[in-house]
């Protein structure tokens, strides 16, 4: 199925259907991840691959136009490169351990400790959470910084300075358009609190089941997207202040980092959570809680920043093509 969708993407010329298909691709791979026992990953892929990235593509397409020009040059070189790379990979699979085999080296080294000892060392049933937020907390910190970087990058590329009259103009336009959506608006108003509640549940339940800061952040952001789409940008602007979101994104990173700094100040290694409480396992709980909160905060606010800047760009008519030297 995945292969079918991927081939369809090659032949399609209409960018709108391509982005829809890529959403389907994300959703399919998410269900594949569930079959492979990777529930946390599936959760994330479903919200990111099928949700956020499709949404961003759709917004981008509204600004860039839908259709792709046919390829004029012969893609022989590209085919050759792809063929060589692909055959190298197939060649590499020859000596791989078989799919699903329990004897494979990755199941013999490093991972057994996570499976056998994480309960005593960290006390959290979800091993993925333990590894993510404690054993390899620094990678996850890097991940939060990556998403923060993306937020700042999008801001640097797309942010537009808004004038008051612009907002009013958009306002009147929005009001006329959105009156038709009365039913939708009411349904949404009822739904949004539940979505947010669900986000909080995912945020704080990551220790036990699939979920955690990242997924929660995306869901929370989705609630705000929904609000924005139905009530218009300017209403959303009034409720959610842009620079406030930036501060929030920065605080998420800082919250995460400060947990590490506390360990340092207590003479332990960076991100050693045992300093947070007299009992090391409770310390781990606190550490994971704070760190996940930092992740959630940054992810939600960066998603909102990215979305607002994309959408804000498309509502404002783009500035005339500037021809600089």
């Amino acid at each position: 199925m995945l292969v079918g969708v991927a081939f369809a993407i090659i032949w399609m010329k209409d960018l709108l259907s391509i982005s829809m298909l890529s959403g389907i691709y994300g959703l399919l791979s998410a269900s594949f991840f569930v079959a492979m026992d990777a529930v946390d990953v599936a959760f994330t892929e479903a919200s990111v691959g099928a949700g956020v990235s499709t949404l961003l593509m759709l917004v981008a397409i509204t600004m860039t136009g839908r259709s792709e020009h046919p390829v004029r040059h012969k893609p022989l070189l590209a085919l050759a490169v792809v063929f060589v790379t692909g055959s190298l990979l197939v060649y590499g699979t020859w000596d791989m351990p078989y799919f699903g085999s329990a004897e494979a080296p990755i199941h013999q080294h490093v991972a057994p400790r996570y499976i056998n000892d994480s309960m005593q060392e960290i006390g959290v049933p979800n091993i993925v959470t333990s590894v993510l937020a404690s054993y390899r907390a620094f990678d996850t910190f890097g991940e939060v910084v990556v998403i923060f970087t993306a937020g700042i990058g999008v801001l640097a590329l797309l942010s537009v300075v808004r004038r008051q009259e612009d907002i009013e103009k958009i306002d009147s336009f929005n009001n006329s358009m959105h009156e038709q959506h009365l039913v939708l608006r009411i349904v949404a108003k009822m739904l949004i609190p539940f979505i947010m509640l669900f986000a909080f549940y995912v945020q704080f339940h990551g220790d036990f089941g699939p979920g955690g800061g990242f997924q929660a952040g995306v869901i929370f952001a989705a609630a705000i997207f929904l609000y924005t789409m139905l009530f218009g940008m300017s209403t959303a602007y009034r409720v959610i202040n842009q620079s406030f979101m930036q501060i929030l994104a920065a605080s998420g990173v800082l919250l995460y980092g400060s947990v590490g700094v506390i360990s340092l100040l207590n003479g332990k290694e960076f991100f050693d959570y045992s300093v947070l409480s007299s009992n090391p396992v409770t310390g781990q709980h606190w550490g994971i809680f704070l760190v996940e909160l930092g992740v959630g905060l940054t992810v939600a606010s960066v998603m909102v920043i990215i979305f607002f800047n994309f959408a804000g760009r498309s509502e404002n008519s783009p500035p005339p093509v500037s021809k600089d030297s």
């Binding site: 091993i127 993510l132 991940e143 999008v154 590329l157 994309f310």
Partner: peptide, 30 residues
């Protein structure tokens, strides 16, 4: 249990992926 470590790595990599996509689309718009 299935091995949790690749799951963790991929969680991180998915985030990196969406970050790249967002930045790439922003560039395309500009």
């Amino acid at each position: 249990y299935s091995n949790p470590l690749p799951h963790v790595l991929i969680l991180t990599a998915i985030v990196v992926g969406i970050a790249t996509t967002a930045l790439g689309l922003a560039l395309a718009v500009r």
